[in-house]
Write a protein that binds this DNA or RNA. Sequence first.
DNA 1: ATGTTCTGTCCAAGCACTTGACATCCAGTG
DNA 2: CACTGGATGTCAAGTGCTTGGACAGAACAT
Lengths: 221, 221
Amino acid sequence: MRSVLHPDPRTTSTDARTTDEPTFADASRSLLRRTLLEAARDLAADRPWRSVTMAAIASRAGVSRQTVYNEFGSRPQLTEALVMHELEEFLAAIEGAIRSRADDPAAALTAALGVFLQAAAEDALVAAVIREDGRDDLLPLVTSEGRPLLEFGGARLASIMRETWPVLPGPEAAFLAGTVMRLGLSYVVLPVPDDERDATASGVAELVRPYVAMLLERHGA
Amino acid sequence: MRSVLHPDPRTTSTDARTTDEPTFADASRSLLRRTLLEAARDLAADRPWRSVTMAAIASRAGVSRQTVYNEFGSRPQLTEALVMHELEEFLAAIEGAIRSRADDPAAALTAALGVFLQAAAEDALVAAVIREDGRDDLLPLVTSEGRPLLEFGGARLASIMRETWPVLPGPEAAFLAGTVMRLGLSYVVLPVPDDERDATASGVAELVRPYVAMLLERHGA
DNA sequence: ATGTTCTGTCCAAGCACTTGACATCCAGTG
DNA sequence: CACTGGATGTCAAGTGCTTGGACAGAACAT
């Protein structure tokens, strides 16, 4: 049975700061970023993004305004980081759903899409993106300016799939991941009603199922 | 259903650093403590505690030795904090076990004791405590110098029990918690063989079951 | 007795966060 | 249209924590 308390100490070296786990300084830095981005997201839940000031974000995170600028440089950069951060949380949820059904690709895809659609429906930031009419510089980031999002998410999705089903050939996995990412972004911008979520999830899964089956079969699964 | 991604933003205030969630500075501080204590625990898993130097702890955590002294003051204080920290992790595991069986006090106690005994059997720091002959200043902290441990743990255990079973009268809950803590510490110092763990857990649970039943019955459960 | 190692403390330099100020830009208003 | 208020972005001085080096003293091993 897995250890009840702490997983495992990993290394046995006397001390030696190898390129091992993140040092405290790194952890503290990423903690600062996370704190700030979560503050920004929470504030965006209520009011329009445009009205969320840098000062408010700093104050909510308990740091000075200058620190926010030190960390992100400018408001547009913070905005982009915010969207990226949200994407990463979505990807983490999706990864969990996929890994939990590794034995059945179709079920895994259904679960992943279901999780994604529900998360998107609940997410405060996603709500802000589609709530705010045109010129609230949030929408472009997931559409016309969304290439970084698409490529980063596609790459991670592809690597998740390739880790879960190693026989999947690289190019096809990448293409499938990219396609799914595009679909996902589409459903962010144009959601389906709540009562159609499950049907949508299984529908898309059904759609790609034969393709995946063909790939798995053709490549020695 | 609970939100898939982030639980809830809590406040709605524009900004205002209320005594709300921990500010970044606080979080960073506690992160530093945790990092250092985990480094210490991991190092103690291999070698005797006496041979774990302050320098090694600092190096493993990726900070300077001075920072360790700034945070804990001295080696004895760090040692005490280490033991306290470990206690808190045990308590967290126990709390989970109890809350998962809130409807059946006897089963809850059995589960809690089982989790505790297994965790104690696996724990690297507990192993260090009993491995090291007398004068490795670790043992006193859970015996002769163990009163802080006993009182802190007892208080938390009592509050867990009172939260789970509100009808439990305060004094009796405190007494029961204190007794269980003493028993727990005893099993840390003098463990039972692996194959007797379950029997021990249910045995103790059986022992206190009538007492608890009487309390619950007498006070309107 | 001597050399080694660790503890605990001190200090100078570096770095990050804070604070307050300032120029600039933009929106709303008289 | 000029003006005021609020927000962004930048800057400089001040503070506090971390760092790395150094050192005395205690404990231990040879």
